[in-house]
């Protein structure tokens, strides 16, 4: 099979980008989408043209590096998979495929189809953790976790941090991502002491990064390669409301001197 690609090319963060169209060489339907790009790039290189820059790493749907909005849908036509798990058999001979980077103010483009997702890291640095020092943990079985909670926490924790939710949302909102992180820790007994402080810090950082707000369109859930549920957003909203009403904790002065 052969396809034609309409690809976003942009030399660097400051350059203006444009679409360019390329005809693919003969492809095997069992190729992954990224392998198709490899093949196209090999050909471009052999012709002396700069290959298309795109993000990828594990190629098994877990590292969250690959991106690409394919014909308007982040991670391509299938549900519950990442771009790296999309195969050319999902397209037909002669198709024109439009390939774009994630587009969001908080994900500036670095080159071609590569964008910078450090904003996700900063949200987690603001509070996406349980403050436990190495070595201070009690025996693992001294903290029982009801199976339903553990399973639900796991549903949330599956998030691979790819940013497809942001890419899909008409508001470029990061609510699904942040809520998955908040819910994962908030559902575990270990996460309770910092539950409200955490949600407040992470949501505030999310706002600072320039993501949009949630208008419950459902796009994020529809494109999430791990099919993370909108329910987690409700859960986060609940916790954030409590945090907002509580206000900032009382500042303790002094300490254990003496």
């Amino acid at each position: 099979m052969k396809v034609s690609l309409k690809v976003w090319r942009q030399k660097n963060a400051n350059a203006a980008g444009e679409f360019k169209t390329y005809a693919s060489p003969e492809l095997n339907p069992n190729m992954s989408f990224l392998e198709m790009l490899d093949v196209v790039n090999e050909e471009l290189s052999n012709r002396g043209e700069d290959p298309i820059a795109f993000d990828h790493d594990c190629r098994e749907g877990i590292c969250g590096t690959c991106s690409l909005v394919i014909d308007g849908k982040p991670h391509g036509p299938h549900k519950g998979v990442a771009t790296c798990q999309t195969y050319m058999r999902s397209f037909s001979n002669g198709d024109q495929i439009v390939i774009e980077p994630w587009r969001a103010k908080a994900f500036p483009i670095v080159k071609d189809l590569v964008c910078d997702r450090k904003s996700f890291d900063r949200i987690q640095q603001a509070g996406g953790f349980i403050s436990v020092r190495t070595g201070s943990a009690p025996d693992a079985n001294s903290i029982p976790v009801p199976k339903e909670n553990a399973d639900l926490a796991m549903d949330a924790a599956q998030c691979i941090g790819c940013g497809a939710c942001v890419a899909a949302c008409k508001n470029a909102s990061a609510m699904l991502f942040v809520s998955a992180k908040v819910s994962h820790l908030g559902l575990m007994p270990q996460g309770q002491p910092e539950r409200y402080k955490r949600v407040k810090a992470m949501v505030d950082q999310m706002d600072t990064e320039g993501f949009g707000a949630c208008t419950v369109t459902g796009s994020c859930e529809a494109v999430c390669p791990k099919e993370i549920s909108l329910d987690f957003i409700a859960r986060m909203n609940r916790d954030y409301a409590v945090a907002l009403i509580q206000g900032d904790p009382k500042q303790v002065v002094g300490g254990g001197a003496g």
Binding site: K6, D71, G72, V98, R103, G210, G212, G218, S219
Partner: peptide, 21 residues
């Protein structure tokens, strides 16, 4: 929200969103 998505997609947008939203 508009500022958060400065450049629109060419290949279609708002995949999977409910039309009313």
């Amino acid at each position: 929200n508009k500022a958060a998505r400065p450049v629109a997609y060419a290949g279609g947008s708002a995949y999977g969103s409910s039309w009313r939203s």
